[in-house]
Amino acid sequence: MFKKIYSPVQKVSFAPFNHLSVKRDDLIDPYISGNKWRKLKYILAKAKAGNKTHLVTFGGAYSNHLVATAAAAARSGLKSTAFVRGEAVKNEMLLLCSLFGMELIFTDRESYRDRHKLFESRFADNAEVCFVDEGGASVEATLGCAEIIGELTETYDHIFCAAGTGTTAAGLLKGLQEQQLPTKLHIVPVLKGGAFIGDEIARYTTTDKQLELHLDYHFGGYAKTTPELIHFIKTFTAQTGLLLDPVYTAKMFYAICDLEKRGQLHRDERILAIHTGGLMGLFGMRDKF
């Protein structure tokens, strides 16, 4: 089901930038969108090659990864199960997961910390089950994300991407290294204390001066927002027609604009922002708007 695909690059007019482009991975698929599609591509291929019939994964109640995995499994003729962090709830995201046939196992936060132990407690003796880590983090995921660079038909001075686990970032860096491109890769961790993402990237590829982490744009932590960020989302979307999610892409675009104000980017430099999808995350923050 994961045939080769090229998402479009769209030039965006947003002051003060003259050369701001967006890789529209959010348009790949309505449910397996953005980097979720990229991450799952080779995970699914490996599962199929290993005669796996059942995907088991992990995430929060508003996880785009859970929706993407449920949809991908259903389209591939596979069963799916998710350990959902926290108390039992009902929301739009989990409704989609259920409709795609995913079994949901709500799990207390302490038990959730050891995902491998959780997996072993239910599926240790089942050879047909495939473990898919939270967010799809894996070597296979980096291979899919590296393909973003190979799809580009122009070169850029800077590429920006938001990050939660570092897997997509590692794939982008691998892609730049494979193509021997001098482009600077800027990663915007969306978690407080996101320096660990540098270590996560180093698990998959060699890090060097080509990579820069911007740690000050988490707005309080994962899935946290401020009135300033919400105002930015409204302004950006009204001016460009491009939807942003508050968890990832909004923080990335805010960082780009703020770095220009600080003189660390020049408005005439060629900048590419990776839109990693995740727009259904807006459902969990509708009260913020």
Score class of each variant (00 low, 15 high):
I201E: 12
T53A: 13
K23I: 07
H65Q: 06
A137H: 15
G171F: 01
K23T: 06
E147C: 03
E228D: 12
R113P: 07
A73M: 00
M93L: 14
D108S: 11
E228I: 09
R122N: 14
A127K: 14
L282H: 01
Q179P: 05
L265S: 08
T155S: 15
E147W: 01
V84T: 02
F253H: 10
N91L: 04
D245V: 00
G241Y: 02
K46P: 05
A61P: 07
L78S: 03
L185K: 02
L104C: 03
D216A: 13
L66C: 03
K251P: 03
H266P: 04
F283A: 06
L259G: 07
Q10I: 13
H186T: 08
A61I: 08
L99F: 04
E92N: 12
C97F: 00
H158P: 11
M285S: 14
R267L: 14
H214A: 12
L215K: 09
V188T: 03
T81V: 03
C97A: 07
E154S: 10
D133M: 10
V22L: 13
I256V: 12
I197Y: 04
N35Q: 10
D199S: 15
L213T: 03
F131I: 05
Y31R: 11
L272W: 10
D208G: 15
L143G: 09
L215W: 08
P182E: 09
H186W: 11
D258Q: 13
I187Y: 01
D25V: 08
G59M: 11
M252E: 07
L152F: 02
T167L: 11
C145E: 09
T235G: 08
A88N: 15
F219L: 03
L211T: 07
T183V: 09
T53I: 13
G194R: 06
V84N: 00
K41D: 08
T57C: 10
G144R: 13
G101R: 00
T235D: 15
D114M: 09
F123Q: 09
A195E: 15
D245A: 02
P246G: 00
E140M: 11
L215P: 02
H218Y: 00
H65G: 02
F58H: 03
G136D: 01
